[in-house]
Amino acid sequence: MIVPSSVQLEAQVKDQELIRFIREQNEQTEYTASHCAGAFLLGESGVADGSRLVTYCGGSESLQKAYPKVLVQDDTLYSVVQDGKFISSNGNLVSYLASLDLLEKMAGKFQRQRVEEELLIHKLIEHEYSELHH
């Protein structure tokens, strides 16, 4: 199960049906992932109590304050955190790195490399601004 973030986070956190769904599904998942403020939904559901999670950049303090039992990791140091069945990330484009990490765990390094090549991930990292002049 992968839980992304929402700009309407307060509404999602208060959505008991959503939170219950996350809690129930987590009992069956092999892995539970969050991106960005999705960590707050894992926090609210209580599934990640005692587990390490990272959230969006600048959000660590409020996540820790809202959910004291979650072991919140410093978002300035970690972009993706794996702890047991949980994998959490800063979100946005870092979600790709987190998904690739999870893919590697589930399908191996070779498949990760195949997917990275297909997505042209290396081009994003190596890109430098340039213009052709005629």
Partner: peptide
């Protein structure tokens, strides 16, 4: 992949 109103598309 769970979605709800206001989710970030790239995630």
């Amino acid at each position: 992949v769970l979605i709800f109103d206001g989710f970030l598309a790239n995630e």
